[in-house]
Design a protein around this nucleic acid. Structure first.
Lengths: 181, 181
DNA sequence: AAAATATGTCAACATGGCTGACATAAATTT
DNA sequence: AAATTTATGTCAGCCATGTTGACATATTTT
């Protein structure tokens, strides 16, 4: 299902090439285009987070719990320090959420084998189930969206999204996101 | 500055076409790709909001203030009801933020001409200046990111972002985002 | 033995959401 | 003209999730 032909998805760079020159039209048009992109990002991200929000509400969890479940699910045995690095919150903030997720049986801690100061985090079966429930609609939403763009659309989308990252943080983000077997 | 050749931006659909068939590799690989996209969205959005956050902190405002300034700046004379529609928060939540933004002189209310129940919202000069300060780095970030993708990248990116919206809300989002002259 | 590290915890506070109840003025309907 | 609906504002209290600062414990490293 392609989006409507005209509006948001056109953005031909030289569309008003034939307009009168005197007006500062080119700059203004680019600015308009960019602001549209900014708002598109805002609205898309909001809808993107809405599916899990519904599920979370049922079980009395919030987005913070979601993030913990997700990144522990994705990185089994992750240390608390590494999780803090990803989430960029204080350990006190994490502690509260972590306690709740553990108390409710979605997550367990295991003392690190090599370094016994570490508390490595793992999802329980219930946690894995919850993660799947939460990630499924997002995956489906993203799958459809990527499929809706033409060939090469996914690569282009990723390029843009990746370039939106702070340059300094791209290597680390890549490390976190990509799992090589 | 193109992202590193291998990692995030490859995603050729048939990359492992030649791999052994027995393993359920195709489905797993797609799942992996989609989860990477989900996390990319998460990290990119976080960095995307980080520039304004810095400025906002200086002046003791939060993201809520930003959103109000932005959408009033973008829609001069918008009514409170319309703003609530965009932000999808309660009027009590908006009221607090609105009051602060008005008290500090960034925004004014004007009784509607046709409907005198309405309080139409406008940025003051200080408000317009603030908006420009806030939007400038985001615009620049998005400009660079879109430019970093190949030709047609912007259109593809928009298609995907637009398709991430709830289908039911696409027409309204389009109405809000696009300003026709 | 001392220092550094990984983690946990207590307490207090801020932001920005929420619900519920009620108030006012203006427009619309009857 | 009266009744109703609409647009907005406001009070009060609650919740989720972030913050800072201080301190405690176990373990590893120096």
């Amino acid at each position: 299902m392609q989006p409507a032909g005209k509006g948001l998805v056109s953005a031909e760079k030289g569309a008003d090439r034939l307009a009168p020159v005197a007006r500062p039209r080119a700059a203004a048009a680019e600015e308009e285009r960019l602001i549209e992109a900014i708002e598109l990002l805002f609205f898309s991200y909001r809808d993107f987070t809405s599916d899990p929000d519904t599920i979370l509400e049922e079980i009395g969890f919030g987005r913070a719990h979601h993030r913990v479940v997700h990144f522990v699910g994705r990185n089994p045995g992750i240390t608390v320090a590494a999780l803090l690095d990803i989430l960029r919150i204080t350990k006190q903030s994490l502690a509260r959420v972590l306690r709740e997720v553990i108390e409710r049986g979605y997550l367990v801690q295991q003392t690190g084998e090599k370094d016994r100061r570490q508390r490595r985090l793992y999802l329980t079966e219930a946690g894995a189930e919850l993660w799947e429930r939460l990630v499924a609609p997002q995956r489906e939403r993203v799958r459809k969206a990527l499929a809706a763009s033409g060939p090469g659309g996914e690569t282009a989308w990723r390029e843009v999204m990746f370039s939106l990252l702070d340059e300094a943080q791209r290597p680390e983000a890549e490390k976190i996101i990509i799992k090589e077997p």
